[in-house]
Design a protein around this nucleic acid. Sequence first.
DNA 1: CTGTTAGCGCGTTCAA
DNA 2: TTGAACGCGCTAACAG
Lengths: 330, 330
Amino acid sequence: MTTIKDIARMADVSRTTVSRVLNESPAVSKEARERVHRIIEETGYIPSEHAKSLRTKKTKVIGVILPRLSTETTTRVVSGIDRELGKKGFQILLASSDLNINKEVEHIKLLESRRVDGIILLATNTLEPIKTAVSEAKVPVIVVGQEFPDAICLMYDDFRASYDLTNLFIKKGYKKIGLISVDEKDEAVGYWRKKGYIKALEEAGLPIEKSWQAEGAFTIESGYSAMKAIWEQSDTKPDSIVSATDRMAIGAADYLNDVGVAIPDDIGIAGFGASELSQYAKPALTTVDYYNEQGGIEAARILLEEMENPAVKKNKKNILKYGLIERNSL
Amino acid sequence: MTTIKDIARMADVSRTTVSRVLNESPAVSKEARERVHRIIEETGYIPSEHAKSLRTKKTKVIGVILPRLSTETTTRVVSGIDRELGKKGFQILLASSDLNINKEVEHIKLLESRRVDGIILLATNTLEPIKTAVSEAKVPVIVVGQEFPDAICLMYDDFRASYDLTNLFIKKGYKKIGLISVDEKDEAVGYWRKKGYIKALEEAGLPIEKSWQAEGAFTIESGYSAMKAIWEQSDTKPDSIVSATDRMAIGAADYLNDVGVAIPDDIGIAGFGASELSQYAKPALTTVDYYNEQGGIEAARILLEEMENPAVKKNKKNILKYGLIERNSL
DNA sequence: CTGTTAGCGCGTTCAA
DNA sequence: TTGAACGCGCTAACAG
């Protein structure tokens, strides 16, 4: 691999001069500049960002820790991050945790060892290990999707969104509203979405019936099973289902279809996430749009701000907007 | 930021010894090792991979260049790459080209400047600039999805897949088979899938009718428009449509639905990609599964092999498997 | 088992 | 306008 030294020798100047040309310093004679440029052209020399970073302490790389690559939500967020960061010449170093909680912590260390300028964590839980890892990190960390007490967070308003969505059910005249949720370790999706649902029911004086509730695990299949469980375990059936994710809603709809229950005539259903699937399902699924790509953009902006201007506004909590998309499943 | 030097001083040993501890060299006394470990623990010291790479010439990072993050195909491939590479301790540096052809070339340089150990290019075209950029790269590059003459490639068998799929139409008794394709700059999707379609029709002696063909641009909307164009421009209507992508097929189905044409009763349709959408569309879409995640895994393996053992089997072309998924749209 | 010395490829004083 | 010298944090060769 050719280095700055080689270029210097070939162009008959010092390394310093080559460095100056590379960094477009004006203090170089035209002749020297041209000679250097020519040699660089000929050799196809590419300066090492590594060596550069070693001096400058900046890598222009930020790390993104995510649960899985293969969900729409995460890819949209990452896409937003990438678009925003790309403008400023940053690149993304990926670290997928495969839903393995230990890995999230490891990845923070790993990214730090690579001296990333900052980290964006698409969080899936609020357990202690990851929270302390974030607090102890020596680079700025932005947490997306969950609330961490001592960190800069960017959260979806899961409680209010769920509350609003459930109220939409109520407005439409549904009385026996069931729920498919997920493990509460995922506070945002498991706990807050359930909480919003319950709050709305309470305020409306509607029954909160255990047998109309079941837990899934994000997948379509788990939604199918959860719906099946509800259907088989409930004495009087629910007349509608709030599903904590679109995919589980799709699975639930599949089950209902299999047992000959019509949507929305016999039962209403809605999800969260504004997935593509929700849009093209038949009937199209009512859902909550979290504007994930915008979320990624915001996360990137906040991180950039924090990197330029650290410690100014720590502990800040940012709440993202959301919107209800009414379609034909309700 | 604390460095190896600080640790050495605090543990009262030389930097070398610290380095040895870090790299688990056996040639360190138990006492020294423990002292160093303790100090590392206390300070939260994390070695700089940068400085390390500068010496060792290995970064344990590979670059992935992709058109857009937000398509199932790419995320599946990247997911496969990540899974396979993760096992060996590699990480992925992302470079998304936003479908901008110039950016692909830039990104190769950029990744080289970061001294990635290798590059996987999810290629979208076979134009000259990117081909020469790949040839001139100083690190191993694996090209996925397109055929580059002088590079190590991993290709889907688009021609045969399309040929097989079209023959499935023929077997089912369709006679007036139309096509929604894409720009032929994308050789794999645009050119070869069209070619396979034509070959099958020719062999069966079926008409190849221009007015049954239109070009989309991957999106659902463009599929809708393409179908509309076909429907409005053709005198006698086609009885079926091969769509070069699932998403365009979904769009086409939407249009047909809008004008009251029933699938599969009035017209048959099929796509490529085995997208989730295809599975949950009503009716479920017949499609070609390219096993993208497996493709990513293979790409990673080939790259690892090439990095360990360069120049042994250059110019190798690898063809990936595919499978037809028959559902209810035909 | 341990430390000294010498770079890796670059940016940055400081003098000239 | 230029270059020598130094250091970024680390590994590796060589002596001890």
